[in-house]
């Protein structure tokens, strides 16, 4: 890991030094991919099925080359005493919330990147290092990232994390929906291991139908709301729960895509470069006119003198 980062660091320095921008010509001037595929995948998290075994945390670490430790150590339930957030060495965590209806059946909620349909991070990233792929995954690209952390500011779910302690090649880290595994035709590691299939993986459209069915069949078990169906324009990961989602650690958000306003401002300012060019021409005209005036004035003054 270190070796690679050092090498890429050196090569990048070399690239910068020689100014051989052609190396990145294929990336050059290319916008980030932001595919909103019709049959993009998703995961339906049924919090009523999650028992907080934390196998997903273990599997996730293994799938991403992070030292996962012994799975036996995941039995420790004292970690639930504090609410945890995804970090640089854990792209997903499970939090537990007490359940007043039955204290013996606490509510466990897995947290990870929601893989928005209209991701703010993709819109925000200065170099387009975050892309949304055909399977719905929002994936970070180490070759482009400059470490500005704007994605962290933009993310409404507060998901991306940054290796603040690393001096060279610090990374933005977050769940990548196991994009590499997807390409090999495998399920995301967390979905594959979940012993209760609290995580159902499938086409997002079907998952929404499934969620509706579940709610209809068990109206006393679920509140009639699918979290992620509409939040910030929809997310690939969807949640069902027995009580309101703010009480189980999911933020209350509106249904407008997070990057909507900023992108429309951005595109307004830069609509085919018309406004800047217009401003430029206007200023040029002003400059010319005022110069003429000034010259005339000076000439007059000279005449006067």
């Amino acid at each position: 890991m270190k070796e690679i980062s050092r090498r890429s660091f050196l090569t990048s320095i070399g690239a910068a030094a020689t100014g051989s921008l052609a190396i990145s010509a294929n990336q050059a001037l290319s916008q980030p991919t932001n595919i909103l595929s019709e049959d993009r995948r998703g995961v339906l998290v049924d919090t009523s099925n999650c028992v907080g075994c934390r196998s997903c945390e273990w599997a996730c670490k293994n799938a991403h080359g992070i030292d996962a430790g012994d799975i036996e150590s995941y039995k420790d339930r004292s970690v639930f005493n504090n609410m945890r957030r995804p970090g640089i060495d854990s792209y997903t965590v499970v939090n537990e919330f007490s359940n007043e209806k039955n204290p013996l059946l606490p509510i466990d909620v897995k947290v990870q990147c929601m893989h928005c349909d209209k991701p703010a991070c993709v819109s925000a990233c200065i170099v387009g290092a975050i892309n949304k792929h055909e399977d719905g995954s929002v994936v970070w690209d180490t070759d482009k990232c400059i470490g500005c952390r704007y994605c962290m500011v933009a993310c409404q779910f507060q998901i991306p994390v940054f290796e603040f302690e690393k001096a060279i090649q610090p990374e933005i880290r977050k769940c990548d929906f196991c994009y590499e595994r997807f390409k090999k035709g495998k399920l995301p590691a967390c979905v594959e291991i979940c012993p209760l299939e609290a995580l159902t993986y499938g086409p997002r459209n079907e998952l929404i139908k499934l969620a509706r069915q579940k709610i209809k069949r068990n109206p006393e078990k679920y509140i009639n709301y699918i979290y992620g169906e509409k939040e910030v324009g929809g997310t690939s990961w969807l949640y069902l729960a027995s009580r309101d989602f703010q009480s189980i650690g999911l933020p209350k958000l509106n249904n407008k895509p997070a990057p909507g306003v900023s992108e429309s401002i951005q595109h307004g300012i830069f609509a085919y470069f018309v406004p800047p060019v217009a401003l430029y021409s206007w200023l040029g005209a002003m400059m010319w006119i005022t110069k003429r005036k000034e010259e005339v004035k000076q000439e007059k003054e000279i005449d006067y003198v």
Partner: peptide, 22 residues
């Protein structure tokens, strides 16, 4: 920025949607 040696990246890697890019 975390990777100061990549500060030239925005010159060749564009994301016109990004306010920061602008």
């Amino acid at each position: 920025i975390g990777r100061y040696y990549y500060i030239w990246h925005p010159l060749v890697m564009w994301n016109p949607n990004s306010a920061l890019f602008e």
